[in-house]
Simulated scan of single mutants.
Amino acid sequence: MPQRFAIYYAPSVTDLIWERAAVWLGRDPANGQSYDGAVAGLERTRLLNLTQSAGRYGFHATLKPPMALAQGETEESLRAALAKAAAELPKVSLGRLIIASLDGFLALVPDPADNPALQDLAANVVETFEPYRAPLTPRDHAARRARGLTPRQEELLDAYGYPYVFDEFRFHMTLTDRLAPEDYDEVLQAARTWFGPVLGEEVVLDRLVLFHERENKLPFNRIAEFPLGG
């Protein structure tokens, strides 16, 4: 599989939320640092097992999902388009972030959830960068459908290579993989303990961040960021 790029929101690498999330997930995708030791009472090996996928993708909120580049496009052309688009997009207040359960996995989500400006920005990013996306392979398309989608989500998958865009988009920053019932309460309490001290302030979506997967199944790395100029 070719390399893939994703356009995310992620906080500044100096932000306390970023630092805590990197320790929680066991890896900082910006500098490659790994973390050992227990977190909020959860032994590291167990926590890594509960966050394998979240850790591989890195702490982020998806705007344009991971994509191979369309024929004729390069990392350089994508970066140039990101710089141009970001300069024209307005910053968006997310309000306060809270820990929530989404289909069994824990994530940070905005409170309140209803945010038309955020929905507009996410839709803008999806549309703007659609020409840079190579079509899904039949295998990847089938794998997405196998997870169980609504008719609307299948329509979006066919059109944009991802089922959770536009009216199906929900901003979230994933903290765990899907949790078994016997793990849920303990992990939720640990997450509240660990992230609680840094969740009291307003968060502003103020940048687009480019992540890169060099080869299939390797961790995504944070390689560039583009401040919003509006």
Rank of each mutant, 00 (worst) to 15 (best):
A85R: 03
P90W: 02
T14F: 02
T14N: 10
S101H: 02
Q33S: 12
D28Q: 05
L47T: 10
K64A: 13
L69T: 10
R46I: 10
A83N: 02
S93H: 01
L63Y: 04
R96G: 03
A83Q: 12
A68E: 11
A22R: 03
D15G: 00
S101A: 10
F105M: 08
A22Y: 08
L97W: 06
F59M: 03
R96L: 07
G104Y: 06
A30F: 01
P11C: 04
L42V: 15
I99E: 08
L108S: 09
P11W: 00
A107T: 10
V109T: 14
T62R: 11
A21P: 08
R20I: 01
L102A: 08
A87I: 00
W24F: 05
T62W: 11
N31V: 06
M67A: 15
I99N: 11
A30V: 01
G26C: 11
K64I: 04
A107Y: 10
R44L: 08
I99S: 12
F59Y: 13
E88G: 12
Y8K: 08
G55Y: 12
E19H: 07
G72V: 11
S34M: 07
L78Q: 01
D103N: 09
A100F: 05
L102T: 13
S53D: 15
A70I: 04
F105D: 06
P90K: 00
N49A: 15
F59E: 01
F59L: 05
L48E: 12
A61K: 13
L50Q: 13
E73A: 08
R20G: 02
V13T: 15
G37L: 09
L25C: 05
A30T: 03
S93I: 01
S93W: 01
A38K: 06
T62H: 12
